[in-house]
């Protein structure tokens, strides 16, 4: 399904007029921060161009440009309050729920700007799933948590039993819960709840998954399981993960973007960024001298 909804377009605009842009070209003038060789080498799934964000008069993001590569894990790191969560929530327009939000700039998904007119938020969020900081299963049974998404999108109910299993298997939770699907999701441990939320996010067949500090409320053992899962997911999905844990970024991600005070300071492959950061402030942050 296309994220552009004809019904939401102004009368004079036609669906055919909305032509995907070449996302590689967007980064031609950004080579100072975005390494040219990466843009040339990897396929881009999403592209953020000069994105600024305000909450009321509070300027939280200024002029962020960043490519998100297909079937890779991109980590966003930075000190608290640097705008990394806001950035993530701009990628599937979750910030639309916060009334005082204002954005300027563009976010492209497959070349289509998701902030242009005619964008169907339902289809957009169906393509870009999200997992939150605190596990937030619905107050329903484990089964109903998984089937919620497919049902609201009108799936044929005959497929549901098979789907429940396949998503729980993907989220590495099936073995632990297969005999108690009717129990409340709250009967699970924190780590299990978070994996249930991942299974729930998978249930709408997204193409991109956003993780907003998914392990910050979990113990090391549960964290290891989620990280393991994220590395597996990139085979099928494009992943963006916000984390305040640099070791986690180093472990799970292919690319890392370092944010500070609402600006993108540095972006590179994770290996290069951690081994040889270009900016002094990046080095200070990843070596733990501030943040």
């Amino acid at each position: 399904m296309n994220i552009v909804n004809k019904k939401l377009l102004a009368k004079e605009t036609k669906e055919e007029d909305i032509v995907p842009v070449d996302m590689r070209a967007l980064f031609k003038d950004e080579t100072e921060i975005i390494p040219e060789k990466l843009v040339k080498k990897y396929e881009i799934r999403m592209a953020v161009k000069k994105l600024s964000h305000w909450y009321g008069n509070n300027h939280v993001l200024s002029g962020i440009s960043l490519p998100i590569f297909k079937n890779k894990v991109t980590a966003i790191i930075g000190p608290s309050g640097c705008g990394k969560s806001t950035f993530l929530r701009d990628l599937n327009r979750m910030n639309d729920l916060i009334k005082i939000s204002r954005v300027r700039g563009k976010v492209y998904l497959d070349g289509i700007n998701i902030y242009s007119e005619g964008i169907d938020l339902i289809q957009l969020r169906k393509k870009i799933g999200m997992v939150f900081q605190k596990p937030n299963p619905f107050p329903m049974s484990i089964r109903d948590n998984i089937t919620y998404g497919p049902i609201i999108h009108g799936i044929n109910k005959a497929y549901l039993p098979g789907l429940i299993k396949s998503y729980l298997v993907k989220a590495a939770l099936w073995d632990e819960v297969h005999d108690r699907l009717s129990e409340s999701a709250f009967s699970l441990s924190g780590g299990q709840q978070q994996r249930l939320c991942i299974a729930r996010a998978l249930s709408i067949e997204p193409e991109v998954i956003l993780f907003d500090e998914p392990c910050s409320a979990l113990d090391p053992h549960a964290t290891a399981k989620i990280e393991d899962l994220i590395t597996k997911l990139k085979a099928e999905y494009t992943v963006v993960i916000v984390t305040h844990n640099m070791q986690q970024a180093a472990r799970v991600s292919d690319f890392t973007a370092f944010f500070n005070l609402g600006e993108l300071i540095e972006f590179n492959s994770t290996r290069d960024l951690f081994r040889s950061p270009i900016r002094k402030i990046t080095e200070e942050y990843i070596s733990g001298r501030f943040g």
């Binding site: 619905f138 919620y148 729930r200």
Partner: peptide, 13 residues
Amino acid sequence: RAYREGSFALGAT
């Protein structure tokens, strides 16, 4: 709010 966000993030109206 986390419940509502979870629901909206799944593409619910």
